[in-house]
Nucleic acid binder design. Structure first.
Lengths: 201, 201
DNA sequence: TGACGTACATAACAAACGTTTGGTACGTAC
DNA sequence: GTACGTACCAAACGTTTGTTATGTACGTCA
C-alpha cells in the first residue's frame, strides 16, 4: 500500500509495465488487461491512475522519452564527430535494452500514422532528436571534421535517416546485424559524411 | 455476380480494399467490418474468399509486394549509379500513391515485430529489396562510379537504411519534407557514397 | 425441370475490448 | 471513535472483434 505522495511513483510503475508489454507484443497487443497482468494487478488499478487508455499510453511514451534524454546526457563527454558517433551508437539496438526501446518506437509508428495527434507528437520527437544532433554536427564543422559551408540540417537529417533505417533492418534480422556489423556500417557511413556537402561546392 | 474463373480477381479486389484501409487507419484499424464497408460488401464475402483474417492480410501483403515488383521493372532503363538513384526515387513518398504504400509498410512493422512469422516475411522482404539494389551497385563499381574494392552488400545496406529512414521522417512531417527536399537529400547522400568504402583502403 | 455447387447477405456467436460500478481495506483528521 | 478520502479488487457493462451458421439467389449440368 503506497504511502501518500507515491502517486507519481505508482504512475511510473504502470508506465513501465506498459512499456514492457509494448516491447513484447507491440501496439496491437497493448490491452489494459495485458498491462494489469504484467504488473500483477487489476484493470481497476489502471483506471484509478489514468482516466483512459489514451492517457495511459501518452504518459508511458513521455516516460520513455524522458529516459532517452537521461541516457543521452551521460554521453556528453566527446565533441564534434566523436560526439555524433556516440549519440548514434546510443540509438542503435546494440543491447537488449536499446532493442526493446526501438521495438516500442517502431511499433508506435502504426498508431502514430493513423492518429493525427500521435503523429504530430512523433514529428516533434524527430525534431527534438535532430536538434540534439545538430550541435555535434556544427562542432564538427568548426573543428574542420565536416565542411563548414554545408547545411547542418541536411547532414543531421541524412544521419538520422541512416540510423533509423539501420535500426529497422537490425530489428527484423538480428542475426544478419549483430552489434559489430551495425557499428561497422555506422563507421562506413560516417566516413562518407565529409564528402556529402561537396555538391554545394 | 462474377462469372466462373473470377475467383482470383475477386480476391484481388478484396486485397485492394484491405490495402486502402491499411493506408488510412493503419494495422490497428484493420477490421473485417472496415474492409467490408470499404468495398460495400458484407463480412460474409470476406470469409467466403479467405478462411481467416490472417490469410486475408497475408494475401494483401503479397499483392502489394507484387505491385512493387511491377513498378520497379518499369525503371530498368538506366545503369549503375543512375539506376540506383531511380530505384530509390521509386521508394520515396514523392506521390500520394507511394505515400500510401509506405504508410502500409510502416504500419505493418508493428504486427511484424510482434509476430515471428510476419517478422520473418518482413526480413525476407528486406533481403529481396537489397538483392534488387545490389546489381546497380555492382554496375556502378564496374563503371568506376563507386570504388571496386568496397563490399557491395555494405553499400546496399547503408543505402537502404538511409532511404527507409528518410521515408519515415517524411511520412510524419510532410511539410518539412516536400518532394524537392527528399530528392535533394537523396542527391547529397548519393554524392557521399563514393567515399564510404575509403575505410578499407 | 430438378439437383447442385457457387456467391454472397444476414445474423448470431463467444471472446475480448475499454470503461464503469460497487464494495472493501486502510490511513488520516477531527 | 467516527467520518472521510485514497487505493485498490472483483465484477459487470455495452461494444466490437473474428468467426460461424443459416438462408437465398443464381448459374450450370443432367
Amino acid at each position: 500500500m503506497p504511502a501518500r505522495g507515491d502517486h507519481d511513483a505508482r504512475r511510473r510503475e504502470v508506465s513501465e509495465a506498459v512499456w514492457r508489454v509494448l516491447a513484447r507484443d507491440g501496439f496491437g497487443g497493448l490491452t489494459l488487461r495485458a498491462v494489469a497482468a504484467e504488473m500483477g494487478a487489476s484493470t481497476g488499478l489502471l483506471t484509478h491512475y489514468f482516466p483512459t487508455k489514451r492517457a495511459l499510453v501518452r504518459h508511458a511514451l513521455e516516460i520513455t522519452q524522458e529516459r532517452t534524454v537521461i541516457r543521452n546526457r551521460r554521453a556528453g563527454v566527446a565533441d564534434g564527430l566523436a560526439a555524433l558517433r556516440s549519440a548514434l551508437l546510443d540509438v542503435l539496438p546494440l543491447t537488449p535494452r536499446a532493442t526493446a526501446m526501438n521495438r516500442v518506437w517502431v511499433s508506435f509508428w502504426d498508431a502514430a500514422l493513423a492518429d493525427p495527434e500521435l503523429g504530430a507528437s512523433e514529428a516533434a520527437r524527430y525534431a527534438r532528436w535532430r536538434a540534439k544532433l545538430r550541435p555535434h554536427v556544427e562542432a564538427a564543422q568548426r573543428l574542420g571534421e565536416l565542411p563548414a559551408k554545408a547545411d547542418p540540417d541536411d547532414i543531421v537529417t541524412i544521419t538520422a535517416a541512416f540510423t533509423h533505417g539501420l535500426v529497422v533492418q537490425a530489428l527484423f534480422d538480428p542475426d544478419r546485424f549483430p552489434p559489430a556489423r551495425q557499428t561497422s556500417l555506422l563507421e562506413q557511413f560516417l566516413a562518407g559524411l565529409p564528402t556529402h556537402p561537396a555538391i554545394g561546392d
